[in-house]
């Protein structure tokens, strides 16, 4: 039996799931997670191959090793699922998230906000006399840090994409 600590330890895993882009496919994947009691920490989905009609779903989840194995195999059981890769175990991966961050402020706060934006290489994609919208791209950790630094300067709204990820190196999915 699985008595060892490593087996029961909860770890975060990022799955990349290539699916047929058909009605209800996202519902199937999400329903699998809710129906079997798995966590979804982040979820993104978009069509990636219009010719073959494939979409890619990136799911960040967490669980013990046996739960993670179940998630992988349960995903593979779904008929419209073409490929499942666990980017956490299958090798190294690049993970990115984009956030749009609205900051309201005037005077010194504006200057400070711009400085923080520069430090994080965030773009200003909209500005008025009393607001900025920053666009920041980076790891979730970077986005978290940017948001916490800019918060005291008048943060009013945040939209985040959730994580997209891809395996490093030359190999296809």
């Amino acid at each position: 039996m699985n008595e060892t600590g490593t087996q029961n330890e909860t770890r975060s895993h990022t799955f990349s799931v290539l699916v047929d882009n058909e009605t209800g496919v996202l519902h199937r994947v999400v329903g699998l997670f809710s129906g079997r009691g798995y966590n979804i920490d982040s979820l993104t989905v978009s069509e990636v191959d219009p010719v073959s009609g494939y979409s890619k779903i990136t799911i960040v989840t967490s669980g013990s090793e046996s739960v993670i194995n179940q998630i992988r195999e349960q995903l593979r059981r779904l008929v419209p699922v073409q490929k499942v890769s666990d980017l956490t175990t299958d090798g190294r991966s690049v993970q990115r998230e984009l956030a749009l961050v609205k900051v309201n402020g005037t005077g010194e706060d504006r200057v400070d906000a711009m400085a923080i934006g520069d430090k994080f290489q965030a773009q200003i994609v909209d500005s008025t006399t009393e607001s900025f919208v920053f666009e920041i791209v980076g790891s979730s950790d970077t986005v978290d840090r940017f948001i916490s630094e800019i918060m005291p300067l008048g943060l009013v709204d945040v939209s985040r994409t959730g994580i997209v990820a891809i395996a490093r190196g030359a190999e296809e999915m």
Partner: peptide
């Protein structure tokens, strides 16, 4: 129907 039976079938179609 496809929504209701999604978890009740191996696969379904509209």
């Amino acid at each position: 129907t496809t929504g209701i039976t999604r978890a009740a079938t191996k696969h379904n179609y509209l």
